[in-house]
């Protein structure tokens, strides 16, 4: 103990100066300091740069062969076969349902469809009915293709020439 410190103790705390400092009674678990160092290193070690060995350069053909070989390993092949089988089965089932539905619709006549719609008219909204050809029809486009303005003028001229009045015309129609 340093002389200065011992004098301080003797002067100010004689009881304390008589006590041993070496046997404090503190203990630590076995290998505590070694473990602390290891634990701490795990926490603070700088992020190590993982040096990966450069893979030898191979051609694309070798790469493809390697991939195929990998896929043809018994376990991989079995897994691939199972997946392929599932996809194939799914495709067949879906396709069969679709065909059945198409066939059933193909057998329906226009009259059957109309009958069904008229019987269940409440289930269809107006827009759907218009799309299906029920309700208001737009003849403007059809008229436009059937008659030109000149055709109408010619017809009127002819009526005048033949002295055919509207009542006579109605009889013909």
């Amino acid at each position: 103990m340093k002389k200065e410190i011992k004098e301080e103790l003797n002067n100010h705390a004689p009881l304390l100066s008589g006590l041993s400092k070496k046997q404090e009674g503190y203990k630590v678990p076995d290998d505590y300091f070694a473990r602390m160092e290891a634990d701490l290193w795990e926490q603070i070690k700088p992020a190590t740069k993982t040096v990966t060995e450069a893979a030898p350069r191979t051609s694309w053909w070798d790469g493809l062969i390697q991939q195929i070989n990998w896929l043809l390993q018994p376990r991989m092949a079995l897994q691939l076969a199972s997946v392929a089988l599932l996809i194939l089965a799914g495709f067949f089932i879906m396709n069969r349902n679709a065909t059945t539905q198409t066939d059933a619709l193909a057998n329906l006549t226009a009259d059957d469809a109309s009958e069904y719609i008229l019987a269940n008219l409440d289930e269809f909204d107006t827009e759907s009915l218009i799309e299906l050809g029920f309700g208001e029809e737009d003849f403007s486009a059809a008229d436009a293709t059937l008659f030109e303005d000149t055709d109408v003028d010619d017809l009127l001229d002819e009526l005048q020439r033949e002295n055919i009045d509207l009542q006579t015309l109605e009889v013909y129609l």
Binding site: L19, Q23, E24, G25, Y26, K27, V28, P29
Partner: peptide, 10 residues
């Protein structure tokens, strides 16, 4: 549990 002092140290 890691403290085992004598009476004076306690």
């Amino acid at each position: 549990t890691y403290f085992d002092p004598d009476e004076a140290q306690l």
